[in-house]
Structures are given as structure tokens and as C-alpha cells.
């Protein structure tokens, strides 16, 4: 078992009341699985993804990662686990605009305090640039890239630290259907290579690419569709 969520509840304080974003979720995520989370807006999909990334804490319940209980870990440890194991693709195509393509790929590695004597990170960057057709664009700034190229950079960036799990929040965002399908094929390919993937999407057609589909509603898993 890779991730195990036990009776997870998450409440957010609204103006006068409290909103139950997640209401007692139990979920197991196995290694090399590909899960799609679907459901209406406000169902708790993104909150669940944030919990997996350690970017928000549950109000109650426990989260285990590789048999390690994460719930009570301090932020520093959560950050380390995120840095070493988790890649995130956001709905918005966010990169660092003042860094060139290859520097954007290098940026997450700066957290590992590599130095120039270690050549492994250069190999990794080159490998990713080859894989995502970014090699010829390596010295360009993000503003000089097309939507598709930028999306490839975003995906490559999320993989640079060799994560064990990829969390994708509406990764197809504002892409057209053709570009969306291409991106999903890339994500599917990554899963075939052994990467565990959890993807949030509104689109049930796109969700179908996953091995398992969970339908979330009102903060809980209502149905397993696949």
C-alpha cells in the first residue's frame, strides 16, 4: 500500500459556519495505480489532492505513506516527503517566468543543494528535455512557448525530482480536446513506466483513461465507477 487514508475529515471555516470539504474518506492508493477523481464542483476532489500532497492537514483521521503515519509530522518532514516523492501538476500552467526552460527544470533541484560536481541532475534534465521535446526550446523563456509547449514543460517540471506519485489537478485545464488527449496519453505512458498517478478531472471521458475512477460527492466517495 502506498497511500492509505483512514476516516479523513476536513473542515474549512466559512463566514459563520464550517464547511465539511471531506467527510470521513477512506481510500487506499496502491503503487503504480492510476486513479481519477471525478465529481461536481465542491465535492472535495481538490482538497483530497491537497491532503495527499501535504499542503493541507486533515481535521481528523490518519494518512499513511509507505506505512509511515504522516498526520502528526511537522511541516519540515512533510516538505521533505513532498520534495522526494510527490510531483504536482496544477490546473494553471504555472512556471517561473524569468527562468529559461532548462532553468525551470533545474529550479526544484535547487532544494536538494546539488552542486556542479554532481552531473546526475544535468543528465536528468537532458533526459526530460528529450522525452518532452523541449531540447530545442531549452534556452527560451516561458512567454516564448506555445500552450502545448508550456504544458509539456509543466509536466516535465513535475517529474524532475523522480517522484513516486504524480498528483494532477485538472491537468488538461484550458487545453482543447485534442491537446488534452495527447497530454493524457503522456500521463498514461508515465503510469505504464511505474509512476502512481492521482488525477482530478471534471470530465468523465478524460477520466476513463485511468485504471480506477472514484466519484466524489459531498466530501465522500460516493461510487467506484471503474
Amino acid at each position: 500500500m502506498f497511500f492509505r487514508l483512514i476516516d479523513i475529515k476536513k473542515q474549512f471555516a466559512d463566514k459563520d459556519s464550517e464547511v465539511n470539504a471531506l467527510d470521513g474518506i477512506n481510500l487506499d492508493i496502491n503503487e503504480k495505480n492510476f486513479i481519477s477523481l471525478v465529481g461536481p464542483s465542491g465535492a472535495g476532489k481538490s482538497t483530497l489532492l491537497l491532503l495527499l500532497a501535504g499542503l493541507v492537514r486533515p481535521t481528523s483521521g490518519d494518512i499513511y505513506f509507505d506505512s509511515m503515519k504522516l498526520t502528526k509530522l511537522p511541516d519540515r518532514e512533510w516538505s521533505r516527503i513532498r520534495r522526494e516523492n510527490i510531483g504536482i501538476i496544477f490546473q494553471k500552467k504555472i512556471v517561473i517566468n524569468h527562468l529559461r526552460v532548462h532553468e525551470n527544470l533545474l529550479a526544484p533541484l535547487s532544494l536538494f543543494d546539488y552542486d556542479h560536481r554532481s552531473i546526475s541532475f544535468h543528465d536528468r534534465i537532458e533526459e526530460l528535455m528529450e522525452k518532452f521535446d523541449l531540447f530545442d526550446l531549452r534556452n527560451r523563456y516561458p512567454r516564448e512557448l506555445s500552450g502545448g509547449e508550456l504544458q509539456r514543460l509543466v509536466v516535465a517540471r513535475s517529474l524532475v525530482t523522480r517522484p513516486k506519485i504524480l498528483l494532477a489537478d485538472e491537468p488538461t485545464g484550458d487545453l482543447d480536446l485534442d491537446a488534452s488527449m495527447k497530454l493524457l496519453e503522456v500521463i498514461k505512458g508515465l503510469n505504464k513506466e511505474g509512476l502512481t498517478i492521482v488525477m482530478v478531472t471534471h470530465n468523465k471521458k478524460l477520466a476513463n483513461i485511468a485504471k480506477n475512477i472514484y466519484l466524489l460527492n459531498e466530501g465522500n466517495i460516493q461510487k467506484i465507477l471503474k
Binding site: 520534495r83 510527490i86 504536482i88 504555472i94 517566468n97 525530482t161
Partner: peptide, 16 residues
């Protein structure tokens, strides 16, 4: 803000 937020999501600690 995007850069710092992205950086934190990539595993930067508050200290980083």
C-alpha cells in the same frame, strides 16, 4: 507570489 507558491509546492520548507 506564483514562484514562491510553486516553490513551496515543490517541497520547499518554510525555512527555504
Amino acid at each position: 507570489k506564483n514562484e514562491l507558491g510553486l516553490f513551496r509546492c515543490s517541497g520547499a520548507t518554510r525555512g527555504d
